[in-house]
Design a binder for these strands. Sequence first.
DNA 1: AACTTACCACTACACATGAAGTGGTGTCAA
DNA 2: TTGACACCACTTCATGTGTAGTGGTAAGTT
Lengths: 191, 191
Amino acid sequence: MRQNPERRTALIDAAIEVLADQGARGLTFRAVDTQAGVPIGTASNYFANRDALLTQAGQRVFQRLDPGAEVVGEALALPRTRASVERLMHEMVGRITAFRSGFLAMLELRLEATRRPELAKVLTDQIRANLQENIDFHLQSGMPGDAETVVMLYLALNWLIVERLTLPEVFGDERTKELVTAAVNQIVPPR
Amino acid sequence: MRQNPERRTALIDAAIEVLADQGARGLTFRAVDTQAGVPIGTASNYFANRDALLTQAGQRVFQRLDPGAEVVGEALALPRTRASVERLMHEMVGRITAFRSGFLAMLELRLEATRRPELAKVLTDQIRANLQENIDFHLQSGMPGDAETVVMLYLALNWLIVERLTLPEVFGDERTKELVTAAVNQIVPPR
DNA sequence: AACTTACCACTACACATGAAGTGGTGTCAA
DNA sequence: TTGACACCACTTCATGTGTAGTGGTAAGTT
């Protein structure tokens, strides 16, 4: 169990790529080593077993998905209108879609959580916290819409991203943007 | 490449279970044989390769997810109100959630489609057709809401099911029902 | 300055698992 | 008898884990 924190992080990031590329079953120490460009055996020296790798990858995805402080700052400076909500949602969808491997890895982890109670627990906590943060932020920002609104947007936009990342031909690029807008318009109540 | 159609179907259904249980990488001929309770080598005799198994499993899920004619008939007999839409949505979520392995298998297939263009093509066609059917049915039924409404419900409810099937603790049983209702109320416009 | 200690990168290996594919045998029915 | 299929055995191959071991380096010690 080695210490070097940068290397450790690099390995976890490599694990995320492997998850997205090859699925949960493809996540082996060797695959991580190869992806990270380090000698075989390295990941094995850094993580006790696959479970550790899995759960740490799960936590790391959330860490990397967190919008920076600037984004949050900018958001709070926006006028409290539906148009702002729309803009924020476009930003969010764009940000998550851009971290393709992260989202796909998270889906793989969810599926894997089906077979690993421990992983399920970790992910559940993260998702709950994340959703609550979004709700709190939204309410605090004074934007139109209540907690239920946030949950609905969470549901609709998540599947939109699934569609976008797994079967991009179902909705094209343009249609995706339209749907983000449509979701906001339909779900956020008029003032 | 054997013919016996019942056995073939039984193998494909077994493949769906394997997909849900063990993931796409776990889908091997042997695993299918074991799941189906047939001798090792059987699946290998029925399918040329894993690709064939994968794509046929993908098609089969949709086939099994199709609501029966009675459900459709009943639906058309319902009054054209929001309450009816709600009822239909509850029915749909219930039906899909009940076919747990089918939905999970489909998610696995989506992820696998990321790496297999051929599979992606098959799934894209199926999803498109399925969504279009839903839209047509809805419009034809005279229920409140337009095509966009159907798409929004499709998006929101799909992720709700993901949540339900992969991390059931995030939203409990009760909360899930509430959210179906909330989705319909927020997305289907008042008359 | 030489020595020691601890950590770490890297290598190598022993052991285990699991799968594909093929070829062959038995069985039943036309 | 011939053909189609169920079933089984065996060979071959690929991949991964865990761990032990080697050598290098840097920091602190005497």
